[in-house]
Each structure stands twice: as C-alpha cells, then as structure tokens.
C-alpha cells in the first residue's frame, strides 16, 4: 500500500531538488546548447566548487553559499582559460567535436584524481545554521538544506535568463552559434563572446557545487553521477533553452525522488540516465528544442 503522504513528500522534495538541478545544468545548457562545446568536465567543476566551499567552511567557518558566490570570479577566469586552450587546440583547427570531447574527458579525470589526492576519498560536508532545520506545511516537511539551494538555483536561472535576453552580451551569446559572420558585423568578436559565455558556465558550475555540498556530503567521484543528470536535463530541456532547462530539472528531480521513495535510493541514478537514453533515442531535440 502506497502512503500518499509519502508520495506528496517525495514530490515536494523532488521539486526542491529540481531547482538545484537547474543550477547544476545551467552551465551545460549554455556551453553545450548555445556554444556547441561539449564540456563533459562540467560536473568536475561542480565538485571543485563544492570542495572550495568545504575548504572555506572547515577553515574559516564561512557560509558555503557565500563562498560559492565569492569564488565565482576565480572560476570564471578558470573557465575562460580552459576555453582559450580548447579554442586554440581544437576549434580553430576545425576538429572540435570528438577530440574536444576526449580533451574534456581527460580534464574531468584530472580534476577528480587531483581532488582525491588532496582530500582523500572520505565524504566531506559543510556546516551552516540552516542545515538540519525544516518547516512543516500541511503535513509536508520542507528541509532548509533543500529549500535554500532551490531558491538560489531559481535565482541563478532567472539571472541567466535576464542576461541572455536583456543584455548586449547575452544576445550575442544567443547569436554566436547561429551566425558568426552576422555577429562580427554587429561589432562583436565571436571568440571573445564564447570565452565570456564559457566562463559564466564554469562560474555557475562552481556556485552550484556550493549548493551541492549544502544538500549532501561530497566525494571526488560524485561528478560521475552528475554527467548523466546534467546532459539528460540539457537534452530533455531542448539545448540552449533556459526555461526548458528548469522544466526538465524539475521533471528529473521529481522522477528521481519518487523512484528513491518507492523502489529505494539505489535505483534513482538509473532514472536520469534512463531519461537521457530515452530522450536521445526518441526526441534528441528535447521538449523545447530549437
């Protein structure tokens, strides 16, 4: 007998989780969806951001999410640098797709191994006043450690949406994958625009890493779980669509949460990859595809 209370709780937790998934996936929607750069190392940067939050929290007692925000300029710079290497090595030579993919796979592996060399393979977690507290609304418990990341994730989604639709640089990013010549005529350098966008993508990844470690403890190999999630969300949401990313994130969050409640947590990971395989096989353009 399924208890409806349990299901309702799972759905609410899933929606909250979805807001966080949106934060993790925004960068991929931006780089994969709009720049056609398949940054498979994105989840590794998420974990790197999580460890930055852990480091500042354990040594200085700084709030993890505040750390995440403070670290965004650094990760923006790292992202811009990685894109420059990628551009010089692959894109300019016109052999970006497969060798570029291998390059990012190597970067993912290096970050993961470097983190386990530095911090070991123990689970790391952070402390903050809101972690562990919760409120109850009509029999449904809402944990703050899920609510806060969800709210931050929604704010990030809104900010990226406004950036892309309202600013010159944002519109240039939207245009760079469609027509580079037209973009040049508008007085914008495509490489520079892509560098900016990639930097923003990595900065978003690091901030979402701070959210991740707020929700649950992290090990260096956590990034592998998120490869499927972020690409499932990016593909399902329709590559490059910010609204679609949010919708797909919530769908995935609810599906995983229900799966974990009804069948056990060991199955929940298969949901994202199953959705990814299904989306790729049936509708590669996603729900809100271009």
């Amino acid at each position: 007998m399924i208890s409806w209370d349990l299901v309702a709780n799972a759905v609410v937790a899933g929606i909250l989780l979805g807001g966080f998934y949106a934060a993790v996936s925004l960068g991929v929607s931006l780089t994969f969806g709009l720049l056609d750069v398949v940054n498979i190392a994105h989840p590794a940067f998420v974990i790197l951001g999580a460890y930055a939050a852990y480091m500042m929290n354990s040594t200085l007692g700084l709030d993890p999410i505040l750390t995440g925000v403070l670290f965004t300029p650094l990760f923006y710079a790292i992202g811009a640098g990685v894109y420059r290497i990628y551009y010089a090595s692959f894109e300019r030579r016109g052999e970006e797709s497969l060798r570029g993919l291998v390059f990012f796979f190597g970067v993912l592996f290096i970050i993961e191994v470097a983190l386990s060399l530095t911090y070991g393979v123990d689970y790391r977690l952070v402390e903050a006043v809101y972690i562990g507290k919760s409120i109850e609304l009509g029999g449904i418990g809402i944990a703050f450690r899920l609510l806060v990341p969800c709210v931050v994730g929604l704010l990030m989604t809104l900010a990226l949406y406004l950036f892309l639709s309202r600013t010159f640089y944002g519109r240039a990013v939207m245009g760079v994958s469609q027509d580079q010549v037209a973009l040049r005529l508008m007085g914008a350098d495509p490489v520079r625009i892509k560098t900016i966008a990639f930097g923003i993508g990595i900065a978003a990844a690091s901030l979402s890493g701070a959210l991740l470690i707020t929700i649950a403890p992290v090990v260096p190999s956590t990034d592998r779980d998120y490869i499927g999630r972020v690409f499932a969300i990016a593909v399902l949401g329709g590559l490059g669509s910010i609204g679609g990313t949010l919708v797909a994130s919530i769908i995935l969050g609810v599906a995983e949460s229900l799966m974990a409640t009804l069948f056990g947590p060991s199955w929940s990971l298969a949901v994202s990859f199953g959705i990814l395989l299904l989306a790729l096989a049936v509708r590669p353009a996603g729900l809100f595809g271009r």
Binding site: S266, G274, L277, A281
Partner: peptide, 27 residues
C-alpha cells in the same frame, strides 16, 4: 543507436549506458 545518434550524442549515450548497466548489476 548510431542510426539516430552521431558524434558527441553517441558518446554521451554510451556513458549513460554504462551507468544504467551498473545500477542493474548493483540491484
């Protein structure tokens, strides 16, 4: 799968396959 998925999509799908299979074996 290569009928529908070319290039990077194929690679991501094979990675997903690996995780799904691992989940099945774990259970």
């Amino acid at each position: 799968l290569t009928l529908r998925l070319k290039g990077v999509f194929f690679s991501i799908a094979t990675f997903a396959l690996s995780v799904v299979l691992q989940t099945l074996i774990i259970n």
